[in-house]
Amino acid sequence: MAGLARRLAPAAALGGLAIVIVGVADPAIAGRGEATATGTTATSSGSSGSSGVAAAESPAAAESCDTADAVTGPSVQTRWGPVQVAATIANGELCEVHATVWPDGDNRSAMISQYAIPELDAMASQQGVAFDAISGATYTSEAYRESLQQLLDSL
């Protein structure tokens, strides 16, 4: 896990509130263009949960990546076929990740792979962003994460 969470994006502590509506339009949240928030007041829902939404940081340039070592993760089996990743790593920091093997057994898997795998390549490489799970695109992504995790764990 620590491998995927090397550099953590700071976020405000929001303990006790389910969600705080801040009503702030923050361009950084979209990384480009505008972002709007429709809420205008701060509130507590009374739920036991707590949450904040942190904007994704831009990928940080790692100076030592020019001399990074290339490593390959284990093959992880999914219903649609194996997934395997390769990464370049310098001083324990991820520089670049890409899938070397992914399912392409039928058109659907191929379509999904072509979309989801490249997306996750770059997501995993965004060193300013740390996360434990992904909401929105996880068809073959868990196997991708698994291969990447095992690769990181083996370092």
Binding site: A9, A12, I19, I29, A35, V53, A55
Partner: peptide, 8 residues
């Protein structure tokens, strides 16, 4: 979004 948008 009406959730908390916290700049990183």
């Amino acid at each position: 979004s009406d959730a908390a948008l916290v700049s990183a």
